[in-house]
Amino acid sequence: MTLRASRLRRGAGAAAIAAVLAAGAMPWRAAAQAAPLPARSLYRLKATWTSHTGRPVELPSLRGETVVLAMVYTSCTMTCPLITGEMQAVRRALPADVRPKVRFVLASFDPDRDSVAALRAHASKMSLDDRWLVLRAPAGDVRQLAVLLGVRYRKLPDGDFDHSNIISVLDAGGVLRHQSPRIPADRAALVRAVTAAARSPGS
């Protein structure tokens, strides 16, 4: 898979080998860690994503926060802006005590066109602040995350994507708590789910 290939290319030294081994290798994270992940945690999928600031982001680093997550691609002119807008509206509608505890994440379907620079431009255009992460990863990791979330997508000959418009809510342990399957979303249900997840965090 693509990530493996790129790791092999990058891993030109013993340090890199050690790092891969220590990290437990991919794609599944060992259950036995200091504080074990819940059995159904999505963070058991180990893949390194890159954020719009160029920073590497491992999904388990999101542990402890409630996460609102959707998959989009930045050149999408149809439903993706609606998805992002819905997430912004959910954030505005959250109770004040909950709002700072919630992380908003967009993961790109489109590693070919969504470079770090493209992600950064998108974050700026959509006025996404530092509670937002816009992420990219190699195609194989995109597929794994999509499969975990039940997101369906396919690339079209013109480079665009057909895709589900799912917005997911993960608790602090990375367990899926709620999914909104369509746009327009049931915003009240999303707000309720995020609030419940943030106030009774998972492990």
């Binding site: 149809m78 589900s164 418009n165 369509r182 746009i183």
Partner: peptide, 8 residues
């Protein structure tokens, strides 16, 4: 719609 290919 659950899908992208829908005019805005």
């Amino acid at each position: 719609t659950a899908w992208r290919r829908l005019p805005l």
